[in-house]
């Protein structure tokens, strides 16, 4: 239609990105952590007073880490306020002030203690792992099982992802690698029945810890979220103290949607912890801060690779240092 063609032509003319120097944009986006840090130094040391430009730079560091606009501005305001009391405003001071601001957010909700199930008071100790598709749940379950086994504990994995093709086979390989046992049912089986059998077996065989791997689900699918609540209920019926932990696994490169995920999952089940995976890339995992503030979850682990040992304890001060680029 004529009108359509005119609109298209007009669009071409008004081409927003036509005149952008893509190379410049690309190189700008490729800044490494140290480069960003150098920029703070430049921005700070090159000027007598910290002006708005400097704060824009700081804001960029925070926003590009996926911290979100709101929290980033809050932190900038906080840094501004605190800098008033600093006599020397050099690279070191601003780094320290910002680091303290960020670390304090995590301090309110996290501890740096190594995660260990409370074996003395609960046997079996039940852990359920939940999350959206592709977050890294199964890999995390395998690594956790390996950790517990290495610590001399008996472990059973429950394969409650009966939906995705070959999810059973994938988890079975992980169970073999970790040298732990696994309870499985055919594809398409009711996940709750797998959970029931796993927990039952753990009780009968006096196993120390149970890890339930669930199917990936988008937090917007109500029926699938209800399925999780049901799993939680089934466990509780067998053991009134359980599940002891429900960990949400979030891909470290996730953007602001991670907050939605965390909120939705915590509505369906009693989340107790957050595991951030794939932090061995260039994503900085800034979403942790908002989740920390909003839901007060501990971070038992972070995932840094595909190997069985690539599950690390979370160290908030190190995490902050990495995020703002001093490491």
């Amino acid at each position: 239609m004529q009108l359509e063609q005119q609109n298209l032509l007009k669009r071409e003319k008004m081409g927003l990105f036509k005149n952008i120097n893509i190379d410049k944009l690309k190189s700008g986006l490729a800044k490494t952590r140290s480069a960003i840090f150098n920029r703070i130094s430049e921005a700070v040391t090159g000027k007598v007073k910290l002006d708005e430009d400097v704060f824009h730079e700081l804001e960029e560091i925070l926003i590009t880490s996926d911290m979100g606009v709101e929290l980033s501005s809050e932190i900038i305001e906080d840094v501004k306020r605190k800098l008033v009391y600093e006599s020397v405003r050099n690279e070191e001071t601003i780094y320290k002030v910002m680091e303290n601001s960020l670390t304090s957010i995590l301090e309110n909700s996290f501890t740096n203690v190594e995660y260990e199930p409370d074996y003395t008071n609960f046997k079996p100790y039940i852990i359920v792992v939940v999350g959206v598709n592709g977050a890294g749940k199964t890999t995390t379950v395998g690594k956790m099982a390996h950790n517990f086994y290495q610590a001399g504990r008996t472990v059973i994995i429950g394969a409650a992802d009966t939906f995705r093709a070959a999810a059973n086979e994938q988890l079975e390989i992980w169970a073999q690698r970790a040298k732990v046992s696994i309870v499985q049912k055919g594809s398409g089986a009711d996940p709750s029945s797998v959970v029931y059998e796993t927990v039952k077996k753990a009780i009968d065989e006096k196993v120390d810890v149970v890890i339930i791997d669930t199917a990936g689900r988008l937090h917007t699918k109500n029926n699938l979220m209800d399925e999780l609540s049901k799993i939680q209920r089934v466990i509780k019926k067998l053991l009134d103290y359980a599940p002891n932990d429900i960990f949400l696994v979030v891909d470290g490169s996730t953007g602001q949607n991670a907050i939605q995920q965390a909120k939705a999952f915590s509505k369906s089940v009693n989340l107790t912890g957050l595991i951030i995976t794939k932090l061995d890339g260039t994503a900085k995992g800034g979403i942790v801060f908002q989740i920390a503030r909003e839901l007060k979850l501990k971070i038992p682990y972070i995932g840094v690779g595909e190997g069985i040992d690539d599950l690390q304890n979370f160290d908030n001060s190190l995490f902050v240092k990495t995020l703002i680029g001093s490491n």
């Binding site: 891909d251 490169s253 996730t254 994503a283 800034g286």
Partner: peptide, 14 residues
């Protein structure tokens, strides 16, 4: 690419 990806999408894509 996962549509939930955040700021780092530009780095991996590039």
């Amino acid at each position: 690419v996962d549509s939930m990806t955040g700021q780092d999408a530009v780095n991996s894509a590039k």
